[in-house]
Simulated scan of single mutants.
Amino acid sequence: MTGTADTALDIVFLHGGSHAQLATLADPALAPYRLRPVHIRTGTPADLGTADIVVVSDRLRPDLLIRWADSIHERLHRGATVLLFGENSAGRWFPGSREQSRPTVFWWWRTGEDHRLRPRSPGHPAWQYFSRRAVIWHYHGVLEPPEGAVSLVDLHTETGDRDGSILYLDETTTAGRLLVTTMDPVYHHGSGFMPGATQLLYSALYWATSGGRKPC
Rank of each mutant, 00 (worst) to 15 (best):
T7R: 12
T7V: 10
T7P: 11
L9T: 05
D10M: 04
F13I: 01
H15R: 04
H15S: 03
S18Y: 04
L22P: 00
L25Y: 06
A26D: 14
R34G: 06
V38K: 03
R41E: 12
R41V: 06
D47I: 07
G49W: 03
I53N: 01
V54P: 00
S57H: 01
L60G: 02
R61L: 06
L64K: 08
W68S: 02
W68P: 01
D70F: 00
H73F: 01
H73P: 00
R75G: 08
T81L: 08
L83A: 09
L84V: 04
N88Q: 02
N88T: 02
S89N: 07
R92W: 00
G96A: 04
R102L: 06
F106I: 15
R110A: 12
T111D: 15
T111P: 10
D114S: 13
R116W: 11
R120G: 10
R120D: 14
S121H: 12
S131A: 06
A134G: 09
V135Y: 03
V135C: 12
I136W: 04
H140V: 01
E147Y: 07
A149R: 10
A149L: 11
V150E: 11
L152Y: 03
D154P: 09
D163V: 06
D163H: 12
D163I: 07
G164W: 02
Y168F: 13
L169Y: 11
T172A: 12
T173W: 07
T173N: 13
T173L: 04
T173P: 08
T174I: 05
G176M: 09
L179M: 15
V180F: 03
V186C: 11
Y187L: 12
G190N: 08
F193Q: 05
G196M: 04
G196P: 00
G196R: 01
Y202G: 08
L205R: 11
G212H: 11
